[in-house]
């Protein structure tokens, strides 16, 4: 089949069901709908950012079944049934997640565009429990580019939350 012949035919959609920030969402999408675009365009959850669309910057990072992933590198249909947490789902009853507050307190952002991805990535990193030193935080946060250069403040913010968790015995 050549492209133009296919072009004139109807575009078939596929069903996808996702739990996003605790809410079940059922959608019909074209198979090549990317999870990131589904969040931003279809569900109007624009907190998750598109920075490069190729897994090269981390701005689109969300938590999928608890693990941090680049939502730009996933077809939505392949995540059917998954639990997804975006930056909009981190605060509880209006109370910011400790890492969100730490980002504010340490001025860990400037333009704010990479910030949701940094925070979701940081939440994932804390959950993984592998980062204990600044060197480790730096390395395990290197998948999130901040062109404004807030890196040292981002490390400060994450270090503070890891430290608080350790103190609380979590």
């Amino acid at each position: 089949m050549n492209a133009s012949r296919k072009g004139s035919s109807k575009l078939e959609t596929v069903p996808v069901t996702l739990t996003v920030n605790g809410e079940t969402k059922r959608l019909e999408v074209l198979p090549w709908t990317i999870l990131l675009d589904l969040l931003r365009d279809h569900l109007k959850l624009s907190g998750t950012k598109k920075g490069c669309d190729h897994g090269q910057c981390g701005a689109c990072t969300v938590l999928v079944d608890g693990r941090r992933l680049n939502s730009c590198m996933a077809f939505a249909v392949m995540k059917d049934g998954a639990q997804i947490t975006t930056v909009e789902g981190l605060a509880r009853n209006g109370d910011l997640h400790p890492l969100q507050q730490a980002f504010i307190d340490h001025d860990a952002f400037q333009c704010g565009y990479c910030t949701p991805g940094q925070i979701c990535s940081g939440v994932g990193l804390i959950e993984e429990g592998r980062a204990h030193t600044r060197d480790e935080i730096r390395e395990y946060m290197s998948g999130n580019i901040c062109r404004c250069g807030a890196y040292t403040n981002i490390v400060d913010a994450i270090e503070q939350v890891i430290g608080a968790d350790a103190e609380a015995g979590r």
């Binding site: 897994g55 981390g58 990072t61 693990r67 941090r68 992933l69 680049n70 590198m73 996933a74 990535s121 994932g124 990193l125 993984e128 395990y140 290197s142 998948g143 999130n144």
Partner: peptide, 9 residues
Amino acid sequence: GASPQLRNA
């Protein structure tokens, strides 16, 4: 290689 996010996928 890559980043933690990519290694998760």
